[in-house]
Simulated assay, not measured.
Amino acid sequence: MPETEPWEYTLYIPNDVRAVTVSRRTLRLILTVHGLIGLVDTAELLASELVANAVRHTKGPAALRVCWSGGVLRIGAWDTDPGPPEPPGELERLGDAEEGRGMALVRACSDLWGWQPLTRNGNRGKYVWCELTSAA
Rank of each mutant, 00 (worst) to 15 (best):
L31Q: 00
L91E: 10
P117E: 13
L50A: 04
S48N: 04
L31D: 01
C130D: 00
L11S: 04
E98R: 13
C130I: 03
A47G: 02
A47V: 04
T4M: 15
V128C: 11
D16G: 04
V17R: 12
R74E: 11
D111L: 05
I75A: 06
E8P: 00
D41R: 11
N121V: 09
L118E: 13
E90G: 11
A63D: 00
A47C: 07
R101N: 14
Y12A: 15
V33K: 15
L112V: 13
L50H: 03
G102L: 01
P6K: 11
L11K: 01
G38D: 07
T26Y: 07
L27V: 04
G122V: 03
R65S: 08
T26R: 09
A135N: 09
P84H: 05
G38Y: 04
E92A: 15
R28S: 07
V40Q: 06
A54G: 00
T4F: 14
G95R: 15
V106E: 05
N15T: 14
I75S: 03
W78S: 01
P6A: 09
G83W: 14
L118T: 10
T133N: 10
D41C: 02
A54F: 01
V40R: 03
N121M: 13
P14G: 13
I30G: 05
I30H: 12
E86R: 15
S110Q: 00
E131V: 07
P14C: 10
P87N: 08
L36R: 00
D16T: 06
A63R: 03
L45E: 03
V40E: 05
K59A: 12
A135R: 12
A108Y: 09
R107C: 08
A62L: 05
E98M: 12
L50G: 02
P2F: 05
S134K: 04
V55L: 07
A19H: 01
T21Q: 06
E98N: 11
L94W: 04
S134A: 13
A136V: 08
G70Q: 07
E5Q: 14
S110F: 00
A43N: 00
G125E: 05
L31Y: 02
V55K: 00
W7V: 11
E3R: 10
L11M: 09
S110M: 01
T4W: 14
P84A: 14
T4I: 15
G89F: 07
H34L: 05
L94M: 09
G76E: 06
L91W: 13
A77R: 02
V51M: 02
R18V: 09
V72W: 07
E99N: 13
E5T: 12
A77Y: 01
G114I: 02
P88W: 08
R28H: 08
A97K: 12
G102S: 09
R28L: 05
L91Q: 10
C67Y: 08
G102C: 05
P88G: 08
T133M: 10
G89T: 06
T119D: 08
T10C: 08
E90P: 08
D96H: 15
G100P: 06
S23N: 06
E44M: 08
A19M: 05
Y12W: 15
P61H: 13
V106S: 02
A47T: 04
G71S: 06
V33A: 15
L46Q: 03
Y127G: 01
L46S: 03
G76D: 06
S69F: 07
G122K: 04
E3Y: 09
R28A: 08
A77E: 06
N121D: 15
P84I: 01
E99Y: 15
A135Q: 11
